[in-house]
Design a binder for these strands. Structure first.
Length: 201
DNA sequence: CCCTGATTCGC
DNA sequence: GCGAATCAGG
């Protein structure tokens, strides 16, 4: 794919929003994050920090070539302006975060669909094997307790706690394979038909 | 390990 | 101009 005007525009917009190159690449499709970064640089819209700062890469001709080894060029770390990583995004309130607000009809705090689209259907929140439950209770103590924004494709997206409370987070442990959850949570999320079949009480 | 952006350089 | 490979870090 090529850098059409509209694609460049998306790039500019997302980069301006502080999106990572990989995210932008995914959004655009057909390009890698390297391509995005390369384009960003070519466009000259690199410095995400202070706008006014002139963070130019000094002309690389000041250094005479006396290196037998073609590798290891001078490390580019000249400008030491004040850092300012986070652009804006001041959202101390997490209940204003997306995707999960509307349906919270479950007193026994448990699963609410987090991130968005392609998550598998939730089990009806009961009928779970005791072993799996025990396992979950254990690993949840070790959970990374990630916020919604911190989730990635390989962090367990199992929600814990009440989203309307401070006491809400996502498991965040390494996911199992291509699953959205860690091993323990996969255990309760994906019940084999046979196991849940005649779970007489 | 996962991720991030930065740079280089052949195309 | 483009972007894979590589580098440098978190």
């Amino acid at each position: 794919m090529s850098w059409t005007d509209d694609r460049v525009e998306i790039l500019k917009k997302m980069w301006g929003e502080g999106q990572s190159a990989s995210q932008i690449a995914k959004e655009l499709g057909g390009v890698t994050r390297n391509a995005v970064i390369g384009k960003v640089h070519r466009l000259g819209l690199s410095n995400r920090t202070t706008a006014g700062a002139a963070a130019k890469t000094d002309t690389p001709k000041a250094e005479p070539k006396a290196k037998p080894v073609p590798k290891a060029p001078p490390k580019a770390k000249p400008v030491a302006v004040e850092p300012e990583p986070e652009p804006v995004s001041t959202k101390p309130d997490l209940k204003t975060e997306p995707a999960i607000a509307p349906n919270t009809p479950r007193p026994p705090r448990n699963q609410i669909i987090p991130a968005g689209q392609p998550l598998p259907p939730q089990p009806s929140a009961n009928e779970i094997s005791p072993e799996a439950l025990a396992k979950v209770n254990e690993i949840e103590k070790k959970a990374k307790k990630l916020s919604l924004m911190e989730l990635t494709e390989r962090t367990c997206k199992w929600p814990v706690g009440d989203p309307a409370t401070e006491d809400f987070w996502f498991c965040g442990l390494p996911v199992k394979q291509g699953k959205p959850y860690c091993e323990a949570h996969v255990g309760v999320a994906f019940q084999p038909m046979s196991a849940r079949r005649d779970r007489r009480r």
